[in-house]
Simulated scan of single mutants.
Amino acid sequence: MIITISLFAGLADRIGTSSLEFACNENELNADRLKELLSQDYPAAASLISVSFVAVNQEYAAGNSPISEKDEVALIPPVSGGEPKPDLQHHASEDGMYVITHQELSIDQVTTKVITANHGAVLTFTGTTREMTGEQRTIHLEYEAYVPMALAKLQQIGDEINEKWPGTRCAISHRIGLVKIAEASVVIAVSSPHRAGCYEASRYSIERLKQIVPIWKKESWEDGTEWKGHGLGPWDPSAPGELS
């Protein structure tokens, strides 16, 4: 069977393509076995393949999850080298609350989405490109995303928030492509009847975004570049959402 696999960030560079047609002679295939076979065929990328997650039909797949020719398959690397392939379009969920876009973000537009007459608290978080990290000067950031899955995971965050804090509204917009110093890369707006739930839901949303949404950033400095995953510490997109 022929499996079509989407590749991102460092994997796309090491294997030499962002979309791979992979021929498999085995009748039954699961996520772990796919990684084994890919590592055999692409030994230069084996170390990165081994630590990557497999996504099947826009959901993170366990190692024993079966894969067929009809499935949409992607290999999700946590970090490491590559060149971004910016998508110049604007993508949104059906209700418009979750957006992945190459366009500049408007804090007011995102915040307006969550304002409602019955909510007394509205909180907006804006993540911007920082110039100095210690002694290191950042020139700009470049973001890449697995867009359809990223939108699905943003929607999942909204659903989790509504379950934990019933009635809370959430809207998230994230940029892809080049983001200059002091420009916004992500805007998260949350509203709720009372401020306590609003603060908690806002914190939850950004931490969860870093944990499960397939977005990568390339940091460009005065003396080099490096791809990084979105989160700090161990990146575990299969982890359940909890507040620490």
Results as ranks from 00 to 15, higher is better:
S185G: 13
C24D: 11
Q211E: 03
V179I: 03
G158V: 05
I5H: 07
P193R: 11
D32H: 12
V190M: 00
T124K: 00
L123I: 14
R203I: 11
V73S: 08
A23M: 09
L7F: 06
L243S: 13
S50E: 15
T138A: 09
P193I: 10
E242H: 13
R195W: 07
S68E: 12
I115S: 09
T138L: 04
E226G: 09
I76S: 07
T138K: 06
L178W: 09
K113T: 00
I2Q: 15
F53M: 10
K164E: 13
A150M: 04
P237W: 00
C170S: 11
Y143R: 01
A12N: 14
E26Y: 07
L34Q: 01
A45I: 06
G16H: 12
V122D: 00
E131S: 08
E135N: 15
R137F: 05
A92T: 11
L141A: 01
L20M: 04
Q156V: 04
H194F: 01
W227L: 03
H140I: 03
Q211H: 01
S65E: 15
I212A: 02
R130A: 06
I107C: 05
Q109L: 04
I100K: 10
P240C: 08
Q211W: 03
I188S: 02
W165A: 06
D159K: 15
T128R: 12
D71I: 07
L88N: 14
P240L: 10
F53D: 14
A9E: 10
R33Q: 13
H194S: 02
W221R: 01
M149Q: 03
K70D: 14
D32W: 06
D87P: 10
S80N: 15
D95A: 07
D236K: 11
E94W: 11
T138Y: 00
E94D: 15
L11V: 03
G241A: 06
E222T: 04
R208G: 03
D108W: 00
N64Y: 08
S6L: 11
T101M: 05
C24Q: 08
E160I: 15
Y42S: 07
A23L: 10
S185T: 05
A201T: 02
I49G: 07
K113A: 02
W221L: 05
L232I: 15
D13Y: 12
Y98D: 02
L209W: 03
K153S: 09
G158Y: 12
H230R: 14
W165G: 09
I161P: 09
I206L: 06
A46T: 08
L29E: 05
R33T: 07
V114P: 00
I15Y: 04
A182G: 05
E242C: 15
Q109P: 03
A12C: 05
T129E: 05
Q211I: 00
A31C: 04
Y60S: 05
A117F: 11
E83D: 11
P166D: 07
L88C: 10
P166K: 06
W165C: 06
G10D: 10
L151T: 06
G158Q: 13
V110K: 01
S6I: 07
I100W: 06
E83T: 12
I172Q: 01
Q109W: 01
A184L: 08
H91F: 14
T126Y: 09
Y146W: 07
T129C: 13
E222C: 02
L38T: 08
L75W: 12
E69H: 09
K228V: 12
I3E: 02
S39N: 04
T126H: 06
I107G: 03
A61K: 10
H140T: 02
D41C: 11
K85L: 15
L151G: 05
